[in-house]
Nucleic acid binder design. Structure first.
Length: 921
RNA sequence: GCGGGUGUGUUGAAAUUGGUAGACAAGCCAGACUUAGGAUCUGGUGCCUUCGGCGUAUGGGUUCGAGUCCCUUCACCCGCACCA
């Protein structure tokens, strides 16, 4: 009986599906293990061979953990709201749901062929109303909450209202947009609209005007992580800055906790570092400068991390968007300032990035007073100061900040050095080292002391206070799009009002077209009767990250109609033990999810405050493209080695026409009409193609489809090969060439159980040599899976199978545990052999074999004998021999004499079990 | 510019964490069986060579011993980027 993978794989996949083999049931008697893949966005292109890499790894861990006695939750679903389906809908008129469901079905059929052990009963799509009901629910909870800084927790907004009624803003320590100040009496006197506006300043989900990334081509705003280099991540369209009123999430309130939480997570350092940078904590000082405009005087607060440099302040700078700008502009400067603001406004984000080196700015006409020296310094406006960070105003110290330096040079402002011996004639001195000078009471101190001394001084004299700033901004939460979750908000007398919980889900209405309305309203404005009790409903929808922020919780209890997740399910499954996915979500999804989870934790809906305990980033699988070289102006194609003799043009060729870099000439001619009459200049009778590693994509003709691999080699081979390709976390090119090696291994494994065509396994007792092979492999697999080093496990299997074939071993005692151990990697062949071995239950119900050191212990060890560190020969010695014995034995060997000829021994170093080093002179 | 990472045969990669570098695979070469082979099996395969020597990007250091630890330089990849 040959290894017929097609028949075997079909048979077992059908059986797993029919019997729901991998159904997870809450079982307090067993320890739980939750393995999650970042669920995919089902794109129209289907899966390529790179996508399942992480899924295969997580499936191996899932199956392994089941063998180790864990109750494993391993679900899968789809991140189904998103731009591509909507763009397609705009172009074709086809409802995004239709496209999405078609793509989901395709994904599902591709996934099913690879033999994953998902519990498909828990599957859902983020666009299912049953699911997005809970996304809307969470939004309403955020709308109904504020963040208490003193309690470090979200609290119901009713508590805040009660506080306002009792004592206004007195003693308030909460996260907010701007610092408001009013008394209880004032609060009570506010009208409904006014109260709503005030509360927006504190809600965790709030509506507010902000500068947003507006993408005209997509007709929507985008979050910071959806924009890269001034272009939209999806589609690559230009993005500009625009002030708009938008729904936002007060993620910034959680900055400190998001940062601290990283300490407790088992994530890679690079990923944690990325999040730290994104959160961007910096310790500094807020200081008040009096600014004099004509006869008026007002306080301007600046933020600095270098309070020690205050004696070097020679000017101040405001962000162009700062509210202070109109207030401090003098009548004489008004025209110039307005011209500058117009210039800044018309720049797109992309231009701004491209021109970071150009220095621009304008003088306001006002002067600030240095609170320490009483000196007057001019107040400027420049785009290098950002309105969104700190206070949008800075004190400029050109001697010790390179940006201030460039500005001072350009506009001829004075530069005062503050560190002894520093040279500021060519560039600023940014390093925090040296002895202070020109700095009043700080003179003579080292910079590090001066930083603290200056902060103390400022606080002691009431000039300002210590302040921790974060770079993390609130998340913009509305999109002017159709294909997303509708906001459960209606406008009663213009006041944003939450829909009652029992009206959820608020389902997406039908519209006749998916593009914005003629007057620029979002597509939902096209819906007939988009109202609640006669009041208009919100017309924007939620962004892509909304649905993916709590999906891992829903898998714990996916059919619950009365809660996102029941208390019992949450307390059993708690959080994700192992999360596998790409790095591209480092600053998006992985921040939002942590925020979302912490919020639900604060309100007591979940019991863990971090969602993902351990996270692995699988590397990307790139494509390996092939090229042919056309001689310019002809239809002749020259082989790689000969192309230097011609002027050639490199052309991508479909990799299906190439094998081992040899071109299939007839296939190439048939590929495209223009190549029909192609002629070839061959080397050694063959056409050798060039190659390069590139992103796997249709346009490069280098896409490898997993279905084709399953057809030709089988899912087990695909799984093994993807793991064999190299370390999981590393990016690597796909190269189908090597796949025969693992396929051959599976056939060899199969043959261990067969004698000719017959299944043949003996009950004979295993020999010590055979047991050693087995137990070496057990130890190796245990260690490798703990470190996610799957490639070496596959190698170890190949070696073990090679050794067992050499030993001609067909014994059940050895082979049965081998099948169990192989089952996480190649489950189909394992199930088949397991059944042939006479078992009626799935191999998944077996236990992972116990490692017994006794079988692998050697009674002798090989010592490497070296002279002055150079290994000359090896010596086989009993393992029990002590150092002195080893030394004596080695010194007595004839080879030693040979290498000692004429030299004297200085000393002998014996490393037990490894090395004997003889130092000679 | 700042931060993180990587560098080993023709290729993907191993190396028990400081102990015989290149396991395992691919490719290539030779042989066997074949009408044939994108099939199967066997052997060889880092470089220079006569002994032997040289080899883990580069130059140095620590050590009896370094791919592994420390410093220098170079190259590449990733992330952030006017964050005061």
């Amino acid at each position: 009986m040959d290894y017929n993978f097609r028949e075997i794989e079909k048979k077992w996949q059908d059986k797993w599906a029919a019997e729901k083999t991998f159904k997870a049931v809450t079982d307090p008697a067993k320890p739980k293990y939750y393995v999650l893949d970042m669920f995919p966005y089902p794109s129209g292109a289907g899966l390529h061979v790179g996508h399942p890499l992480g899924y295969i790894a997580s499936d191996i861990v899932s199956r392994y953990k089941r063998l180790k006695g864990f109750n494993v939750l391993h679900p899968m679903g789809y991140d189904a709201f998103g731009l591509p389906a909507e763009q397609y809908a705009i172009q074709t008129g086809q409802h995004p749901e239709v496209t999405t469901m078609k793509n989901v079905a395709r994904y599902r059929s591709q996934l099913d062929r690879i033999g994953f052990s998902y519990d498909w009963d828990r599957e859902f799509r983020t666009c299912d109303p049953d699911y997005y009901k809970w996304t809307q629910w969470a939004f309403l909870k955020m709308f109904g909450s504020y963040y208490s800084n003193s309690l470090k927790s979200a609290r119901p907004i009713e508590e805040l209202i009660a506080a306002f009624e009792a004592h206004g803003t007195e003693g308030l320590d909460v996260a907010c947009g701007e610092d408001l100040s009013f008394t209880a009496e004032q609060w009570k006197a506010f009208g409904e609209a006014e109260k709503s506006k005030v509360l927006m300043n504190y809600r965790i989900a709030y509506q507010g005007e902000t500068s947003v990334n507006w993408c005209p081509a997509l007709g929507t705003v985008l979050a910071n992580d959806e924009v890269k280099d001034g272009l939209s991540v999806r589609g690559g369209h230009p993005v500009e800055q625009k002030k708009m009123t938008q729904w936002q999430l007060r993620v910034s309130a959680y900055a400190a906790r998001l940062l601290e939480g990283l300490e407790r997570l088992d994530w890679t350092d690079s990923l944690k570092e990325m999040q730290r940078n994104w959160i961007g904590r910096s310790e500094g000082t807020e200081m008040i400068f009096k600014v004099v405009t004509g006869s008026e005087e007002r306080d301007v607060t600046i933020f600095t991390t270098r309070a020690d440099t205050i004696f070097g302040v020679t000017f101040m700078v405001l962000a162009p968007e700062s509210d202070l700008v109109p207030l401090v502009t003098t009548p004489e400067q008004k025209a110039e300032v307005e011209e500058y603001l117009a210039y800044v406004k018309k720049k797109t984000e992309r231009e701004r990035i491209a021109q970071t080196k150009t220095v621009t700015g304008v003088f306001t006409g006002s002067y600030g007073i240095n609170p320490l020296t009483g000196e007057k310094v001019p107040v400027w406006i420049s785009e290098y100061v950002l309105s969104g960070y700190g206070t949008g105003a800075i004190m400029a110290v050109p001697a010790h900040d390179s940006r201030d330096y460039a500005f001072a040079k350009k506009f001829g402002l004075p530069i005062i050095p503050l560190i002894e011996g520093c040279d500021v004639s060519e560039e600023s001195f940014d390093a925090k080292e040296g002895t202070m000078c020109n700095s009043g009471f700080l003179n003579g101190m080292q910079v590090k002391e001066a930083v603290e001394a200056a902060k103390d001084y400022v606080e002691a004299h009431g000039l300002g206070r210590r302040k921790v700033n974060y770079r993390l901004r609130d998340a913009i939460f509305s999109r002017q799009r159709y294909w997303g979750e509708p906001f459960p908000i209606y406008y009663k007398d213009g006041i944003p009002t939450p829909l009652p919980f029992d009206k959820l889900p608020l389902t997406l209405p039908e519209v006749d077209e998916f593009r914005p309305t003629e007057d620029g309203q979002p597509p939902l404005a096209r819906a007939k009767d988009w109202t609640y009790e006669g009041w208009p409903l919100e017309t924007s929808t939620m962004p892509g990250f909304a649905g993916s922020s709590a999906y891992y919780l829903r898998y714990m209890d996916p059919h619950n109609d009365s809660a996102l997740v029941s208390k019992e399910a949450d307390e059993y499954w708690r959080n994700v033990d192992l999360y596998i996915g790409g790095t591209e979500h480092a600053t998006g999804h992985l921040i939002y999810s942590r925020f979302w989870n912490k919020f639900l934790f604060d309100l007591g809906y979940v019991c863990e405050d971090e969602p993902f305990r351990k996270l692995i980033n699988q590397g990307m699988i790139q494509g390996r493209s092939n090229f042919v070289y056309r001689v310019v102006g002809t239809n002749k194609f020259v082989s790689l080695g000969l192309r230097d003799r011609y002027e050639t043009q490199e052309i991508h060729v479909d990799i299906s026409l190439v094998r081992n870099d040899r071109l299939d000439l007839e296939g190439f001619k048939a590929w495209r009409p223009e190549f029909e009459n192609a002629e070839f200049i061959l080397e050694n009778g063959e056409y050798i193609c060039g190659w390069a590693v590139e992103k796997m994509s249709k346009s490069m003709f280098n896409v490898v489809n997993p279905d084709d691999i399953c057809d030709n080699y089988g899912a087990d081979t695909l799984r093994l090969y993807e793991m064999f390709l190299g370390p999981l976390e590393q990016s690597k090119p796909w190269d189908t060439k090597g796949i025969d090696g693992v396929h051959r291994f599976l056939r060899k494994f199969w043959r261990l159980f067969h004698e000719g065509q017959d299944f043949c396994v003996s009950d004979e007792k295993a020999s010590p040599a055979e047991l050693k092979v087995l137990h070496k492999l057990i130890a190796k697999e245990e260690a490798d899976i703990a470190e996610f080093s799957f490639n070496t496990t596959v190698s170890a299997f190949m070696i073990a199978v090679g050794e067992l074939s050499d030993l001609n071993c067909h014994k059940r005692e050895i082979l049965e545990p081998m099948v169990v151990m192989l089952s996480p990697f190649a489950p189909h062949i394992a199930e088949e052999l397991w059944a042939l071995l006479g078992h009626t239950e799935s191999v998944g119900a077996a236990s992972f074999p116990e490692y017994n050191e006794a079988f692998t212990v050697e009674d002798s060890v090989t010592y490497a004998v070296s002279f002055n560190g150079k290994t000359r020969f090896t010596a086989e010695l009993p393992k029990s021999m002590d150092r002195a014995g080893v030394e004596a034995a080695v010194m007595a060997m004839p080879q030693t004499d040979k290498y000692l000829a004429g030299l004297s021994v200085v000393k002998v170093i014996v490393v037990p079990g490894k090395i004997v080093n003889i130092v000679v002179k």
